[in-house]
Design a protein around this nucleic acid. Structure first.
Ligand SMILES: [Mn+2]
Ligand SMILES: [Mn+2]
Ligand SMILES: [Mn+2]
Ligand SMILES: [Mn+2]
Lengths: 143, 143
DNA sequence: ACAGAAATGTAGCCAAGGCTATAAATCAAG
DNA sequence: CTTGATTTATAGCCTTGGCTACATTTCTGT
């Protein structure tokens, strides 16, 4: 017998919420890392002003986010200069970009309009586990 | 010509992030509303202790969340008594439960293990737009 | 070279959502 | 009816991620 909660398995367990909160705490880091990587490719470097504009926030908010990235070892920067990802930050950006793309592709594959897929993916991407991502890739390869 | 950003459409627009942040600000409200509804069905009423235990937080945290629910007109309660959803709160809970179920079903349909689907859905559900939800339902009906 | 514009930094405010510690109320036995 | 256990409330702290206002630095055009 594998049932010790005495319900059909539909009762949400606290760990689910804990897990969702943990994923959420990574979301901002992930989006900024990806954006900095985007800007580095497009413009050579990521300036605070550009980061803020693209993230849809004011520049002090972007500065704070970058401070957190630096604290977590994902980025480096010197005062009044651009922001650059560390190796670790670049690796995160790459993973996030890949996940984003797979999520969008899956949404489109099941019938979601491209525009909507792009918008929803921006939130969804942070809650797709490795197992789910792999399932998405397999589904996309086989369909 | 519909292209004024001069890129292939892969450049994230600030509105995407703004939208994701808006969705996130509803997430806690949605999860608590659904949980209170669960407890009301199972036990007749939702007590703070039970809410906290199931959400995986301490009871002061649950109290604060309930305070916000009350402030937003989604729940009512009197001191030292259970928490009850308003009509509006119950409607939200119903929508959220439905969305959660559809998300899990879709994940399973594309090959995600049930256990993983349940865990990931807890975060994903808050970022699925109405358009995407409809697409999921259509996909599930047709497959 | 310098002045004005633009970018960046910084201080300080707010709300949300975590927490611990402590007080008060309710409930359950005896 | 009391009393001890449980539940709930409240105060206060922390971090995060928004914001505005203002100071400082860098860049740019003449
Ligand atoms: Mn995102
Ligand atoms: Mn993304
Ligand atoms: Mn949820
Ligand atoms: Mn849910």
């Amino acid at each position: 017998m594998t049932e010790d909660t005495a319900d059909g398995g539909q009762c949400p367990t606290p760990e689910r919420f804990t897990q969702a909160r943990a994923a959420q705490s990574m979301a901002v880091l992930e989006d900024y890392a990806e954006m900095i990587d985007d800007l580095a490719q497009e413009l050579g470097e990521a300036r605070i002003t550009d980061i803020a504009a693209r993230m849809g926030v004011t520049h002090p908010t972007a500065t704070k986010a970058v401070a957190r990235l630096k604290r977590e070892g994902l980025a480096v920067s010197r005062p009044y200069r651009g922001v650059f990802l560390t190796e670790q930050g670049a690796a995160l950006a790459a993973r996030v970009r890949m996940r984003h793309r797979v999520v969008v592709d899956l949404l489109v594959a099941v019938g979601v309009p491209q525009e909507t897929a792009e918008i929803d993916a921006e939130g969804l991407e942070h809650h797709v586990s490795d197992v789910t991502l792999k399932a998405f890739e397999t589904f996309l390869a086989r369909r």
